[in-house]
């Protein structure tokens, strides 16, 4: 019975996880054929030129980290207020956080192109006489803003759940035993919401690393993410083996990062391995 029930999962993993990864690995060991695409081979020379895409690696990890941290800093207070002050409107307010997600990512991000563009917020600032010649679009700021805006719900939801789960009595017990609001937050609320923070950070950081659309629209080709580098390699220069090598190296990097992160997280909040997502 279990064998039958398990079959779809096995097929899925083979077809959509194992097979593509193997193809990726094989291609990354080949050569670019003279007019683009793939030519079989068994060489590590593609991995040798990974350094030429260093900027894309660095950009991705740096802006991914900054975006995730800013996201956390915006999401935590929001989740905290929702969970502790939401009262009977809690669920409605939470749903409102998710509502923007019902529009497609492309449209949401495009809206920001207009807002940040020269006839958007910079024009408003100029007309109000606050600042002249402000450039917002095509800056790292715009990319981080796009990341925070688009990934915020993914951060808020798990943090909200972990905060909402904390029994009100536990906070009261802390205050009763002599800890003021600040110490109660640091000693009780924050550690008990750690599983939510850990999940939220992974839920945001990992997909942000693969982000393509936000750097294109809000970074205007100036801020180059790995996703953009890959798109170029596959579709412009048609250097499949090198693209595959970059992708493989990137997957390895993400796995290492997550490994370190989980280790650090389990030390910070013991017992969260089972509860946290991923």
């Amino acid at each position: 019975m279990y064998r039958v029930m398990g079959a779809p999962a096995v097929v899925w993993y083979l077809l959509f996880l194992a097979a593509p990864l193997i193809v990726l690995l094989v291609v990354s060991l080949g050569r670019r054929s003279p007019n683009g695409g793939y030519q079989p081979g068994l060489t590590l020379e593609q991995y040798g030129q990974l350094g030429t895409r260093w900027t894309a690696f660095a950009n991705t990890v740096e802006l991914g980290l900054v975006g995730t941290v800013v996201c956390l800093m915006v999401a935590y207070p929001m989740a905290y207020v929702l969970a502790t002050r939401g009262g009977r409107y809690k669920t409605i307010l939470l749903a409102l956080v998710v509502v923007p997600f019902w529009t497609s990512l492309l449209i949401r991000t495009y809206a920001w192109v207009f807002l940040l563009g020269n006839s958007g917020i910079p024009a408003l600032l100029r007309d109000l006489g606050i600042a002249e010649g402000v450039r917002l679009l095509n800056t790292p700021f715009a990319v981080v803003l796009g990341i925070v805006y688009n990934y915020l719900p993914l951060m808020i939801l798990p943090i909200f759940v972990s905060l909402d789960r904390i029994d009100q009595g536990i906070r009261q017990a802390s205050k009763d035993l002599g800890a003021g609001p600040a110490r109660t937050f640091l000693r009780i609320t924050l550690p008990l919401s750690a599983p939510g923070i850990i999940s939220g950070v992974l839920l945001v950081f990992v997909p942000v690393l693969g982000e393509y659309l936000i750097p294109v629209l809000l970074g205007g080709g100036q801020i180059y993410f790995l996703g953009n580098a890959l798109a170029d390699l596959f579709f412009q220069s048609r250097n499949w083996p090198f693209g595959a090598a970059v992708a493989t190296a990137f997957i390895a990097l993400v796995m290492v990062l997550i490994g370190f992160y989980r280790k650090a997280a389990s030390r910070l909040a013991p017992g969260t391995e089972q509860e946290g997502m991923l």
């Binding site: 029994d167 009595g169 536990i170 009261q172 017990a173 802390s174 008990l192 909040a269 013991p270 017992g271």
Partner: peptide
């Protein structure tokens, strides 16, 4: 002393 103890779970 709380009804449901309210011990700190961590």
């Amino acid at each position: 002393v709380f009804q449901h103890y309210a011990l700190f779970p961590h």
